[in-house]
Amino acid sequence: MSPDPSPVRLHVVTGKGGTGKTTVAGALALALAADGRHVLLVETEGRQGIAQLFDTPPLPYEERRVAVTRGGGEVKALAIDVEEALLEYLDMFYNLRRAGRALRKMGAIDFATAIAPGLRDVLITGKIKEAVTRRHDGRPVYDAVVVDAPPTGRITRFLGVTGEMSQLARSGPIKTQSDGVMAVLRSPRTAVHLVTLLEDMPVQETADAIADLTKADLPVGSVIVNMATEPILPVDDLARAAEGRLTGPDLALALAAAHLSGSDVLGEALAAEVTEHARRWTGQDALRDEVEALGRPTVELPLLAGPIDLGCLFELAGRLEEHLRTEVEERTGA
């Protein structure tokens, strides 16, 4: 196994809905598992998105292998079930698993999480912390834990609610557990990565989330620009098209030379298509400057044609692996 000088072992992936954060979380888990490492990929929202992504049956509340990587590495996945997490918590700290099962039969657990939504996040982050700190024979069970977390609008509350619980409980197991969770989440072992698209709303939500996370003393990692497109024209031609200076007659001569019938009509249609592409690209390029101004390490992932399958995930993982390697080299001065 090649050494990894990075101190980060908990990678929290968030992003505005529709930016592909689950896909990015899956690809990041594959990248981190390369060269024989063991990674846990955690789902927090109960959508079974990870199972769909890796084309596996719905995940139960147990850690199951979903992929094998280069060098014998592996990715295991866990879909956190709030009821089971609460039973586990009651058993771990109060030896009350049997009582907890009785509460579940009575519907008390559903009632408690409904009237106190923050309790759900406390249980989830507690389970994540347990996975990060779990050891066997003196070594961490997982080299990294990747979390497919709630979207940017809720991420700071999700990660910070346990700190609020710690302030309410002055002593006892709840206080100890809450302090332990926040110690991990606010440490150099954690990085919150933000997935965005080169569109106005996702970029703005990313900027707002970075500000909120920083204010809450939660460590911000990289900005991952997902589904980035490449220009299909040289820069000068793009600028000309974006300014509306490419017309149908400009293209008609070339189309006629290619012996295409209806070159005048086709030229107008192609000119309109190219102009739209150029203006969209110009707008995206301007947003790149806004992303760069956020001051965080940034990586772009390409827009892939067709549905995302395991091959696509490994392609994205390769891009993320290069990004991780560059970050380590910059950190160590290699």
Rank of each mutant, 00 (worst) to 15 (best):
Y94D: 10
E243F: 07
E292W: 12
M1Q: 13
I115N: 04
T298C: 09
D217Y: 11
G160C: 07
P58I: 01
V225S: 07
V223H: 03
E321R: 15
R98T: 14
L303S: 10
F93D: 08
V192I: 10
A317L: 07
L53K: 06
N95K: 13
M165T: 12
L301H: 09
A293S: 11
G100L: 00
P150G: 02
T229D: 02
T19Y: 07
A33Q: 02
H259K: 15
I50C: 05
A31I: 07
A183M: 04
R288H: 06
H323C: 04
E62F: 00
K129V: 10
A209R: 08
V195Q: 09
R70H: 13
I124F: 01
L213V: 02
A33D: 05
A34W: 07
A191Q: 11
I50G: 04
V39M: 01
L59C: 03
R47K: 12
R154A: 14
G100F: 00
P307F: 10
S171Q: 14
E290V: 13
P249H: 02
T190R: 03
A114W: 08
D179N: 13
A25S: 12
A305T: 09
L96K: 09
P150A: 07
G318I: 11
R135P: 11
A29C: 05
G180W: 06
A317V: 06
E243R: 15
T196L: 04
K127S: 11
A242S: 08
T156L: 03
Y142I: 07
I128D: 07
A114K: 11
L246I: 12
E292L: 14
F111Y: 13
L90G: 09
A239N: 09
G311I: 00
R154V: 11
H38I: 09
S261Q: 12
G49R: 01
R288S: 01
P173D: 04
V181C: 08
A102R: 04
L233S: 02
P231D: 02
E205M: 09
M1R: 12
A108L: 13
A183D: 14
A293P: 02
D55T: 12
D81H: 00
V291P: 00
T56S: 10
P140C: 05
V146P: 07
M182F: 08
G26S: 08
Q177I: 05
L260F: 13
G36L: 06
